[in-house]
Amino acid sequence: MEEVSNYKSIVIELDKEEYAIPVEVVGAIERMQHITRVPKTASFVKGVINLRGVVTPIIDLRERFGMSSIESTDSTRIIIVQMENFSVGFIVDAAYDVLDIPEESIEPAPKVIGTVDADYIEGVAKVGKRLIMLLQLDRVLSQESFVNAKGLEG
């Protein structure tokens, strides 16, 4: 992503902070719907939904980032992200429109951002007065990060 001059992204909100997901990987933005729980998976895997005939796993980004989870509201959205071999959905508090983030405004992630482990934050962009954190999706979904949480599966 470094060489992109304009970082086109979809801005989402989690616990009053803003994060950016590269727009190319976003397949759809869905409203909250019934999620079928899948037993014995990591706690942040909320289950699966029927996305136009494809069974798609759903991850609660709040729980993934160690924030407290909340009841869904009218603004809660599911962002469907298409990775190389699979697609997953992220539950977020809200999703805003597409934003062009100029590359020069992106800075590497600071060593400490609150309580969040920084490895899945690719960088921080300052756009006007907004502070937007760029997500590194491979890390967000990385197997290791939830192997421990998944431990139950054995």
């Binding site: 014995k40 998976t41 895997v45 798609t56 990775m83 071999n85 697609s87 979904l141 599966e153």
Partner: peptide, 8 residues
């Protein structure tokens, strides 16, 4: 799907 893999 591939993401969840084998679930018990």
């Amino acid at each position: 799907g591939d993401y969840l893999g084998n679930v018990f």
